[in-house]
Design a protein around this nucleic acid. Sequence first.
DNA 1: CAAATAGTGTCTCTAAGACAATATCAC
DNA 2: GTGATATTGTCTTAGAGACACTATTTG
Lengths: 275, 275
Amino acid sequence: MNNNMSKEEELFLKNYRIEDYERPSVTVDIASFSVREQEVDNYRQDDEKNLCILLVKRGQYPYKDCWALPGGFLKKGESVEECAFREIEEETHVKPVSLMSIGSFSATGRDPRGWIISNAFVSVISESSVKAIGDDDASDAKWFRVSFTKDGDDNVLELRNGDIYIKSILRETKCRFGRSEFEIKDSGNLAFDHASIISTALTVLRSCGENFDFLFDFLPEKFTLTDLQRVQETILNVSILPANFRRKISGYVEETDEATSGAGHRPAKLFTRKK
Amino acid sequence: MNNNMSKEEELFLKNYRIEDYERPSVTVDIASFSVREQEVDNYRQDDEKNLCILLVKRGQYPYKDCWALPGGFLKKGESVEECAFREIEEETHVKPVSLMSIGSFSATGRDPRGWIISNAFVSVISESSVKAIGDDDASDAKWFRVSFTKDGDDNVLELRNGDIYIKSILRETKCRFGRSEFEIKDSGNLAFDHASIISTALTVLRSCGENFDFLFDFLPEKFTLTDLQRVQETILNVSILPANFRRKISGYVEETDEATSGAGHRPAKLFTRKK
DNA sequence: CAAATAGTGTCTCTAAGACAATATCAC
DNA sequence: GTGATATTGTCTTAGAGACACTATTTG
């Protein structure tokens, strides 16, 4: 802070009328990702892992009944990060593990209510927090399996939960340093410019997927190395040979004396994150 | 956009009074970096390269006469990126090559004028644009050589331009994915929380320094490989063996038929960025 | 024992780092 | 020629990828 404040400065501040300037409303929107299991009918086989995003169904205008990212207006006295944590807990009762800013979305006309800019975040929800929110129909918050593919020059974002299917078509407009931006060609059933925010979030997520430190946030404190590998494979959409993954991860994890059991095959040791 | 708008929705929007909610003022602050040469007395030797940041001297309260990042209030009808480009050109007459969002700074009390949140950017100014702003004393915008070091648990940010010396002490509070956050212990002569923004910007810059695509923005269209190497060395604060740098960069550049001359030693071929 | 996953050993290949040697200019 | 940088060649080493093999559980 400015410690030696002069009389002149005090006077300036006393007369400063912030209301004289036009201001935008400021919101926060959070793209929350988790890696969730989907059951496989073979009792011996492990469950399939899917990258999922958390959306809420809008109960009011604008975009009533459309699906949207959790978020809301910034309140006085909180930072955007605090707002992001608050909003996601209020709307979905899920506690995010980590939060990462992916920039402001501030194009004119992005919100029909007026001049509203949004601070967008990626958040990671761990497997254990995920269990807190079920798939019961009563809830307005649901996890959607994510698919993000290229179709010629277009990008296709597909979100699925049971019978609910959302398809958005976008076009990449900028790509630098692991963060792309997208123009919406067809929003599908997504509110505002959220198709664009989700797409950018996915590119950020993928660029973080190489980073081992990032992967731990998706899992509980104790996990198997195969689980950790599946998380990376799911985020990066690649498949990795177990021997090589284990060699690379070995410096980041510590063995515990616990193990899984009852899985229909050899049990796996549980590990924790090192340091 | 929402195409099939119902009567009900039209009514909702007509009655929506955005003024009913309290809103913050929104600013944009830009940490502009360039790699500048400093003359060496030996006529044969190449000039030294330094990482520099562009600051402006504040002409009014608050923080009058302190140095600050160029920036200003977001205007209606522009995006934060457009605002960043506009502000930096208005205040410094320099045109940035690229812009990268590094998040919002929104802690309460960060601005004595009231509830003001800032969208911070890193921008890169190319060597050619740098020449547009001299070191004449008439200008309120100046380039400062940057040094950012550790002293025990503290981080020390030192900025120098001729006789002007600014020293800030900070403490790292968070570090994830190449972006650290800092708490200011002593702001030195820097306005607002700009010491913190600059420190975060430096960590982002360093994490981008490995990326070859990023380096080109610091140089004119045609450059020598040694210049490119110096840019990376300056940003990452390391020294690289020329043979190895050339091998790694070779896929990213194309030879031209031009070369430097008059440097007191073997001339260097000029290259351009590939594709 | 069969099916599935858990976990290890090792060969190959690539890319990074180190270092040595040669080339070319201005004075 | 001398002193500086420019540019190339190649040896060594660390790490990634591929693949083969062994281990251990449950039904």
